[in-house]
Design a protein around this nucleic acid. Structure first.
Lengths: 222, 222, 222, 222
DNA sequence: AATGAATGAGACTTCATTCAT
DNA sequence: AATGAATGAAGTCTCATTCAT
């Protein structure tokens, strides 16, 4: 997987003026500025991510990507011959959500363990919330996107299950774990997919999480 | 709300052969054939629904809608001046999912009640699965779509809660009902939103449903 | 084969001003002018034929075709979705060179018969000399063109042979007829293919023609 | 005229694998390998010749020339600032078809002399058949090409005439020689120009050649 | 009411060419 | 001498929308 130079990976980069002929204004006297400006290719990817998430893939002209990235139109296609290559490159940049269960597990306390897991996942996904959202929109039309989306969901389920099992210390019914993991993964995934819609009360997740944890504890092991 | 003439609402309408110059062949002398062919406006909406769901709003040219509806291109804009008017008209045709709780509630058996509810909802949504799916894709870009989507979700939650309460006969903790209703609504909604992706094991819903029902029964009323 | 309305088929049509916003200036008071202006589709084909022959297929932008035909750019692609469809349509317009041998044969005088044949062919090809020329240039890249070209050449050979046989009245060696027909067809075809190059002395054809005719007469029948 | 280093003129040069990042692998420590690989400029010209003949001048991007020549894109324009300079350079490399008549003349046997001449010309042109073909395609658009083509044709006619005269030993009518030379030059030239089309029966030339030779012998000297 | 020709803005993409290194 | 990033003009083609009939 292609990792981005961490200097440019942080979410605080952003457009630097929409139309900007400022690009030309290499007003710096020499070499120092290079530490300030992400390379053009990076700016293009960032702009594409933003705009695809904002308006969708089809509704985003490459010319607008160029504008926001502050590069000439030709350069977009120099780095990414076709528009869909941009989508492909974006997928490769998906942050890795792999998470060490030990980091969040509180033995014996499933609810707290899950709470920490969700908090941790949220933190990580925040960096690419728009990207996640974008994936959901384009999953239909682009097979590569659909596959990436599917894989991410499965990984999420596995992770939830691992945490439940570790926190449950053998005290939970195995057949319930799958259901619980599925439901929580659903809730997390859903939140991220519809992030932009904003129709989700903030504490809903907390209550659902408790509900699931309690249910797991309440049932006898078979 | 504009209700569709039930004659044309049944799912067996559908395109009648892509190439079809048959449209011209109105060789019938008068009125008899009109019982066989939905009116042009109806055909246009049906075609739009299919194509938007298949390829997305932006990626569907109005000319293709005209082709599939077997009408001349000009007629599409005659009935729906702008393309987005088609989306608006489609939303108004959303089938009403309102459901009388009594139809599915089995007093004392939450699991069976929910099972029947889900089955019933599935049956109703099947008629417009593609339309549901379409809503998810376009919710970002079109406010009217987003609002419709939101309203439908809330209605779903209310319905699940009503069924739980009726089937629980006062024996379930009120604070759990919300969580359970939210989770199940989530699961149902999710299934429909990702219907096209097909990455959902068929029995997952059944297991999750049982998990939720058991959890509700297992906990003492506070 | 699609035949052009003969009113527009004559070679004297021609561009009516290169950039011409005059198109809009429907200065005519009503209906009379329609007898004067070929329809847009016709003008597009004529412009394409000219420009392809002048500069080659690749080097001719569709925008220039639109300019010369005095139509907006979109109309070119309205009638001919892709540029190569223009080439295809042009091929269908090729004038038919079929020629009744009786029209030119002077029994017993092969030279004169061939002379009349060549004169007749020249007259017919003059109407589409540029088109013929164009075919030669594009035969490599476009299979449809290559096939059309090949077929036209074969037809030419058959015609020359028919005339020789009819004029020779059985007095020519059959095995020579093929060679002679091939050579003359070559000479005719060559003239038309390189028409634009202009490196062909006008009377060369006449001398070659006589040479061939004499050769046919001079040899005893076997 | 710039002559090519004969080491690279042989027809066995040719592309060495399209993808070839091997170019970078100049792992050799020094000078030995240089006997194996034509210099970059040479490879560029060879690649251009091939590609122009295959797809035409306009349809061949310089980037593809660079790819096939296995050189970086910048180098193509370093050696040949504009694309048309490549065409100019290619013309200068045209193999010289000058041919000593004595090499092929069989005194008294015109047919055999011409047969040997044609065979010899074919052998020479085989080395640059694609180049010849290319010339025909581009003659319209590039004056330098047209001129080169014209000059080559005239030279061909002169050569055929010289052979006929030498082989005829004064026994042929002078006025026929021109016609015969013209026709044969036409046939030879035509074969090369349409080489790629492949619509020429192999033995046609042989029959036509005999026909011409016989015709020359059959007529009395005036 | 219905039609399909017409329009022009703008999308994606390609490419020769320049330029800093 | 060599390189490849960068540039922007231009090309093909699509499409929503208008309009005369």
């Amino acid at each position: 997987m292609v990792r981005v130079d961490p200097r440019w990976a942080d979410p605080d980069r952003r457009r630097r003026g929409a139309a900007g002929r400022e690009r030309r204004a290499r007003q710096d006297g020499g070499s120092a500025l290079s530490t300030e400006e992400p390379p053009a290719k990076e700016r293009i990817l960032a702009a594409a991510e933003e705009l695809f998430a904002e308006s969708g893939f089809d509704a985003t002209p490459t010319s607008r990507i160029a504008d926001r990235a502050n590069v000439p139109k030709g350069l977009v296609h120099y780095y990414f011959r076709r528009k869909s290559d941009l989508l492909g490159a974006l997928i490769k940049r998906l942050p890795d959500e792999q998470l060490e269960p030990a980091l969040v597990v509180v033995p014996g306390d499933i609810a707290e363990s899950l709470r920490r897991l969700v908090r941790e996942l949220d933190a990580r996904l925040a960096r690419s919330r728009m990207l996640s959202h974008l994936l959901w929109r384009e999953a239909d039309t682009h097979r590569a996107v659909r596959d990436a989306l599917h894989e991410r969901f499965q990984q999420l389920v596995r992770q939830v299950r691992a945490v439940i099992l570790a926190a449950g210390e053998g005290g939970v019914a195995v057949e319930d774990v799958d259901s619980a993991a599925g439901l929580l993964a659903l809730a997390v995934s859903y939140r991220h997919s519809v992030a932009r819609h904003g129709d989700e009360p903030a504490d809903l997740m907390e209550r659902e999480l408790n509900f699931i944890a309690d249910a797991l504890m309440a049932r006898p092991v078979t």
